[in-house]
Design a protein around this nucleic acid. Structure first.
Lengths: 222, 222
DNA sequence: TCCGCTGATATGGCATGCCATTCTGGTGCG
DNA sequence: CGCACCAGAATGGCATGCCATATCAGCGGA
C-alpha cells in the first residue's frame, strides 16, 4: 500500500492507456497527492508517465465526469475543493442509494451471500477489537460494496461507485474518529439482523440512518 | 422541435467543439436516430460534422460516461440495448433520487418556488385537458426538473440529470399511454399537497411511488 | 461442399504539431 | 511611484497521420 506514484511503466498495452492514466490520477487525487485546488497540467503528466497528451486529456475528461475535477478552457484541470456542505450533500445521496440497495438485497438475499456478509461482519469486528484500523476500514468498505453490488440493480452499483470516488477519502477520515468507530460498529449490527430476517423496509431505513451519521461526522470534520 | 440532424455548423467557436458534438449525438440517441445496438463510427461523424476525430472521440467518451453507449477497442461505440429489466432498475434509482429531492424540498421550500410549481402544475393540467400531449410532457418534465433542481443538493441534481438522459425517451413513451396519463395526473396532485403542507416525509414517499409507477409502465412496454 | 487460412479493409488508439487564448512579468508613460 | 500596456511563455483545443487489431471476403485444400 506504499504510494506507487512511480510510473511503473504501463503494465501491458492491452489495458487502454487512457484508462491506466485515469486510474493513476484518480488514485493520486483520492490519496491527496494532488491537494484540492491544485492544478493538473496535461503536459506534466504526459511527460512524467511517458505517454502523449491525448490519453492524458481523455483521462482528465473521465475524471471530470466523475466529478473529481473541473476543466476550464485554457486554464486546465483543477482538483475540486470541498467543504462540509458538499460532504453532507454527497452522503445524502449515497445514503439514499445504499438504502435502496439494502432494501432490495433484503428482498432477494440468498444464504450464500448472507454467509459472506456474516463472515465479513465478524472479521470487521475482530479488526476493530484488536485495533487494526486499516483492515477495519477496508473490510467496512467491502461490506458496503457487497451490499451495493449484490442488490441486483447494476445502475445502483455503477452510480454508487462514481459517488464513492468522491467520498472515500473523507469517509476514511470520519470512520477513523475514535468515538465514531464505536458507534459505527454498533450501527452495523442492526442491519445485519434486518437482513437475516429479510426485513427489507427495516434494512433500508436503518442502513440509511447509518450513512447519514457517517456523513454528519465527515461534515463535522470540515 | 423538428429533428435538426443537419449540422447547422457549430454555433460559435466559444462553445467547446467536443461538447457540441456530444450534445448532438446525445440528442440523436435519445430521439432514436441511432437505434439501440447500432454502431457509431468516429470517422463518419467526423466527416459529417466537419470536425476532426479528436473532439468526436472525446464526445463519445462523455456519452459513454453517461451510460448511453459502450466503447470497445477496435469495435467502436454501440448504442446500448435496453429491456424491461434495465428500465425497472433505472427508475428504481430515479425514484430514490427524486424522492430524496422532494423530501428535502418540502423541508425548505419558499413561497416563490411553491408558486412556480403551482403554476406549472395548473399549466400541465390545462394541457392535459385539451389533449396537448407534447406540451403536457414538457411541462411534466419541467416539474420533475424543478423539484430536483430546487432541492438544494447539487449532487442530486447532477446525478439525476445523467440518469434521465437514459430514461427520457422511454419515459416519453410511457407517459403517453392514455390510461397512464390519467393516473399520472392524479399522482401529481398528492405531492403538491404534501409540498404545500411542508410534509417532507409524505412528499418523498408519495413522489417515489409515482415514479415507481412510471417505471413499471415503461417496463411493461418493453 | 465446407472449413480454415490469409490478406485487405475498417476502425479505434495514440503521438505529434499547430493554433487560440490566457497568464505573467517587465517596461514605459503619466 | 503606480498603472496600463505589450511581448513571450504557458496551456488547452483541435487537426492530422501512423500503428495495432478486429472484421470480413475470397480462395484453396480436405
Amino acid at each position: 500500500m506504499v504510494a506507487d506514484t512511480a510510473p511503473t511503466h504501463r503494465p501491458d498495452s492491452a489495458t487502454a492507456t487512457a484508462q491506466w492514466v485515469a486510474d493513476i490520477l484518480r488514485d493520486r487525487i483520492v490519496k491527496g497527492v494532488y491537494p484540492p485546488g491544485s492544478r493538473i497540467v496535461e503536459r506534466k503528466i504526459s511527460a512524467e508517465l511517458e505517454v502523449s497528451r491525448t490519453p492524458v486529456r481523455e483521462a482528465l475528461k473521465l475524471i471530470d465526469a466523475d466529478g473529481l475535477i473541473t476543466i476550464s478552457r485554457n486554464k486546465g484541470a483543477q482538483v475540486l475543493q470541498y467543504g462540509a456542505e458538499e460532504a453532507l450533500a454527497l452522503f445524502d445521496v449515497i445514503a439514499s442509494l445504499e438504502s435502496l440497495a439494502a432494501e432490495r438485497l433484503a428482498e432477494r438475499i440468498d444464504p450464500e451471500t448472507l454467509d459472506r456478509l456474516e463472515e465479513m461482519h465478524d472479521r470487521m469486528l475482530t479488526y476493530h477489537k484488536v485495533g487494526n484500523h486499516s483492515d477495519y476500514f477496508d473490510t467496512n468498505s467491502e461490506i458496503h460494496d457487497l451490499i451495493v453490488g449484490a442488490c441486483g440493480n447494476p445502475i445502483v452499483t455503477e452510480t454508487h461507485r462514481k459517488l464513492m470516488a468522491r467520498a472515500r477519502r473523507r469517509r476514511f477520515l470520519a470512520i477513523m474518529k475514535p468515538e465514531r468507530l464505536q458507534e459505527a460498529v454498533a450501527e452495523h449490527e442492526e442491519p445485519m439482523q434486518a437482513l437475516r430476517a429479510g426485513d427489507a423496509d427495516g434494512a433500508g431505513r436503518i442502513w440509511r440512518r447509518h450513512l447519514l451519521h457517517t456523513g454528519a461526522t465527515v461534515a463535522a470534520l470540515l
